[in-house]
Design a protein around this nucleic acid. Structure first.
Lengths: 137, 137
DNA sequence: ATAAATCCGAGCAAAACACTAGGAAAACAC
DNA sequence: GTGTTTTCCTAGTGTTTTGCTCGGATTTAT
């Protein structure tokens, strides 16, 4: 039940984008220095974030990444889903493709995993970047 | 954020022990057949469950495993912790050894992971084997 | 032009996962 | 007391995931 470093890094990186002026794009080099994360690994992570339309990239000198929406409109859940896929402790309780589990009738524990997923989603979907930024002061 | 099959199997296996007469020990062969899980893999899992004192083993013919406590006194959290270690999305929010994270002061996201851990624990620690057995009718 | 940055596609070592194999020891049935 | 059934114990092993690195192409500000 552990979150990958990719997920952790993604949230931290997005928080850096939030804390820095929303106007100017922030370069990965800068994020890398501030958060002590490999710049090239960050690149990979931002491929996912860009595909999920959470950030927009600006090439060239003084380029970088900007949030594509307001910080109060991006949740930790959005970020984790972008880089890690659906938030679901086991495959049979993903919201999409819900019918992947063949022994659904027999599977009593399924309900437990569903409730676990829901409680995880609740926390992650109700925490926005704005919330996190507020705590950082 | 996925639960290992080991964790899933452990809960399912413990549920089998609960559903069958609490008096007689249940053999892993039987659990294996009912739940379609490799018997040898089950053995490994029950090593952990036994170390955590959730089950007691009885050797010899007509042997097997019994719950060491009442089904309403064993939670899904107990089982998962026995086979998977502490329930914590990231290392820095384990209850024990809480000081493993060096950049605690800087780490704003830590609070998020702590809340995530708590909401997961809440669900898992408030679901007992008796609860699951009730649903199975 | 040059430098700074995003984009893009591979590759790769280490760890974790999901088992398998082979036996020793205990308890019971006869 | 000899088999059979079970737990118990220690390894080993292939596959997948994780957590990166490397090399280059493209775009843009100065």
């Amino acid at each position: 039940m552990r979150l990958s470093t990719k997920g952790q890094y993604a949230v931290r990186a997005m928080l850096v984008l939030t804390l820095h002026a929303m106007e100017n794009p922030v370069s990965l080099r800068h994020v890398s220095e501030v958060e002590e994360i490999s710049e090239q690994y960050l690149e990979q992570i931002f491929v996912d974030l860009r595909k999920a339309k959470l950030v927009v990239g600006h090439r060239g000198a003084h380029g970088g990444y900007k949030l594509s929406r307001q910080p109060d409109d991006i949740t930790a859940g959005d970020i984790l889903r972008a880089v890690e896929g659906p938030i679901a402790p086991v495959d049979c309780v993903r919201h999409q493709h819900g019918e992947s589990c063949q022994r659904v009738n027999v599977c009593i524990t399924r309900d437990l995993w569903a409730r676990l997923r829901d409680s995880m989603s609740e926390v992650l979907d109700n925490t926005t970047l704005a919330d996190l930024a507020r705590k950082a002061k």
